[in-house]
Design a protein around this nucleic acid. Structure first.
Lengths: 347, 347
DNA sequence: TTGTAGGCGTTATCAT
DNA sequence: ATGATAACGCCTACAA
């Protein structure tokens, strides 16, 4: 690999001259510049990014840390981050934070955070422990975290009001006449899920509907898990008349389980999701859900990061509201259904 | 930011001792090591990744360069790349290659490629010019490219047989009795699209079905474009009985257009997509499509990159086959339909 | 077992 | 306008 020195030698000029010429400094004469450029081309010279970063102490890159780069949920959020990052002339890289390697290596996300290989980070994954974030965040290395609650300098919290979202969704179900409502959710150690449950139970309580532990399920935030848990639920003796799924993906999985059992949604069972992913409106029946302002979340995370990077002060906590979107997967509860359900169980 | 020197000073040892201690070199005594670790913790020392990379001349990171990180199409491919990368103990970062910045800056992808900020790259975006790839690829910097055909050292081509895929899909449509088949595709300057058209026309020709330029449409590989082009197609006087969409997303967009016009798929119109994304089987009617082995593509790209990185020889070109998946969006052509269509046009 | 010192490839300061 | 040179922070012979 040719270095700047080689180019200098080849062009018969000093190293510094090459650096100036290649970086477009105006004090280099036209003749020298073209001589340098030619030599660089001839030697197939490419600047070494690390050396440059090391010297300059900044990269103009920010990292987006996800729990799994391949998830569909992030799609729209990434769009928001991407656009904003671009607007500000920064580069964006995404890395994941899962720990799957055999050698028990740290995840890429943690590595980037610890070694400060970027100018700042947006963390959307819960797989990064709070302490790592707290001691990575610095004056010149701000971090934006989604859906947490960390009180620390240079750490900016952006959250979605999952409690309110869970509350409204449940309230809607109750208003539709449902009193037997199951909650089929994601991992119990994630704040998102906890908050949605909190909202769920709050709504139940406020409307005098008893909470039934037998109808609370815990799994993963994906389709397969939604499918499996629904099958388990259906294997139980008595069924709810409505199900609140922890997210849309789980609801889609649930839908498949109902299809297989020939249970009609929403006539025999109302279901509601969470997130408002694209798929929710494309599937049939179109899914009633709680929309998170995903693009805005992404854009806001990036904006706040840049504000902080530029020394402007930013609110430590920002809470975004959700919106209930009523589609075709929910219906008002009509009493007769209860029987038909019991019937289909017994056969 | 504390450096290794500060830690050395604080711990009362030499710089090299700190380096050894922190990197787990066995020749450091236990006492010294813990002294060093404590000092590091106290000063909140973090190794500077760039300095380290600069010295070591390798990063154990590979870059995945996409045209747009937020696209749903890549989801499964990324999974494959991710798993394989992990298996090999490398880190993976994703960056995009679109040029949207105001200052006409190079895309992040190109920057990473040129400055070799990683140990190797997988390029899935057509926004990176061939020449950039050709002169970025080096002995110690292999590049795997998807769906191109570049003959150059250290450049590994992995392609999906889009011609065969397009051919089989079209053949199937013809076998179902269709003779009036439209092609609603993506950008005409992408190889994927060109190849699918080639396959399409080859099948037409081979079965003696005339090719109709009026039924060939060019747009973008996304839902909106599929929707719009379909509306345009429907605004034309005569309709085909089947449509071959350039990809599944476009077909989904088309489906919406049909729904709006109350045209029943597949009874009145057969449609077929390409790719085999998740959505294709979830939507109603479930989409007949040509499945690309997406996970395998991702995994293979990563594997080949590592082989090359480890000095093993790799085939310069690999061609992966597709598979036709017949679902509910296609039906055999029955003659009467032709009339009912003309009827619905006139009203 | 620990310390010294040179160098990775750039950039930026200061002379010339 | 150009050149010499000292950092940037880390790693690693080699010496002690």
């Amino acid at each position: 690999m040719a270095t700047i020195k080689d180019v200098a030698k080849h062009a018969g000029v000093a190293v510094s001259t090459v650096s100036y010429a290649l970086n477009g400094n105006s004090k280099i004469s036209k003749a020298t510049r073209s001589k340098v450029i030619e030599a660089a081309k001839y030697l197939n010279y490419k600047k070494n990014g690390f050396a440059s970063d090391l010297k300059k102490q900044s990269t103009y890159i920010i990292a987006l840390i996800l729990s799994d780069m391949s998830g569909p949920y992030y799609s729209e959020i990434i769009q928001g981050v991407q656009d904003t990052t671009n607007e500000h002339g920064y580069d964006l890289i995404a890395c994941n934070s899962f720990v799957g390697s055999p050698n028990n290596k740290e995840s890429t996300g943690i590595k980037f955070l610890k070694e400060q290989r970027v100018d700042g980070a947006i963390v959307m994954s819960h797989l990064i422990p709070d302490e790592v974030l707290i001691d990575a965040a610095q004056e010149n290395f701000p971090i934006v975290v989604l859906n947490r609650n960390i009180e620390s300098d240079h750490l900016i919290n952006i959250s979605v009001d999952n409690i309110q979202g869970g509350f409204n969704a449940t309230k809607y179900l109750i208003e539709q006449g449902h009193r037997d409502i199951a909650f089929v959710g994601g991992p119990s150690d994630t704040r998102d899920n906890q908050d949605r449950i909190t909202g769920f139970r709050k709504a139940l309580e406020m409307h005098g509907v008893p909470y039934q532990p037998k109808w609370q399920f815990t799994g993963q935030f994906n389709r397969t898990s939604g499918y499996r848990l629904t099958k388990i639920l259906l294997a139980q003796q008595d069924w709810p008349t409505a199900i609140f799924y922890g997210n849309d993906e789980m609801a889609v999985g649930g839908l498949k389980a109902f299809e297989e059992k020939n249970i009609r949604v929403p006539d025999e069972m109302s279901i509601i999701g969470f997130d408002g992913i694209d798929l929710a409106e494309l599937i049939r029946p179109a899914l009633t859900t709680t929309r998170q302002p995903k693009y805005e979340i992404g854009a806001l995370c990036a904006r706040f990061l840049f504000y902080s990077l530029h020394g402007e002060s930013v609110a430590q906590h920002t809470n975004l509201q959700t919106e209930l979107i009523i589609r075709q997967s929910t219906a008002t509860f009509k009493h007769e259904r209860s029987n038909s359900l019991t019937l289909s169980v017994s056969k």
